[in-house]
């Protein structure tokens, strides 16, 4: 199966920039996680997203032309910030892999991928 891990976090919390003390360690933990997925055969795809200020939502209403909305879909304390598309045997394995993400705040949404046109 394939699972999508949606990473939600608070954008306004301070984040490290290249050159800041600790930046290398911070990036290193993410690179190590990616490497773990790749070596374990779980990696399908993953990306960091630009902040929600760049977000546009396309909202569909039956019988009407789609409405284009400036901003992310829902206004909450946490914003969608990135994702991984992974391959796992079942939900239990997907949860275990998601638990290894180097995050100490925010939340993750895990959903099976129903259909992916470019899947092998």
């Amino acid at each position: 199966m394939e699972f999508m891990i949606l990473i939600h976090g608070d954008e306004s919390s301070p984040r490290l920039a290249p050159g800041d003390p600790g930046f290398e360690e911070f990036m290193g933990s993410w690179m190590a996680y990616n490497q773990m997925l790749i070596e374990g055969g779980h990696w399908v795809s993953g990306a960091n997203l630009a902040p929600t200020i760049t977000a546009t939502t396309l909202r569909h209403t039956p019988g009407q032309a789609p409405e284009i909305v400036d901003g992310p879909f829902a206004e909450t304390k946490e914003q969608f910030g990135g994702y991984y598309l992974i391959s796992a045997e079942n939900l239990d394995e997907a949860i275990e892999l998601a638990k290894k993400l180097p995050m100490d705040s925010g939340s993750l949404e895990i959903r099976p991928v129903a259909f992916r046109p470019d899947a092998a």
Binding site: M1, N90, L91, P112
Partner: peptide, 12 residues
């Protein structure tokens, strides 16, 4: 059924 929850003895 749809979220891929297994009916197996879990690792944990």
């Amino acid at each position: 059924r749809e979220a891929g929850m297994p009916l197996s003895i879990p690792a944990n």
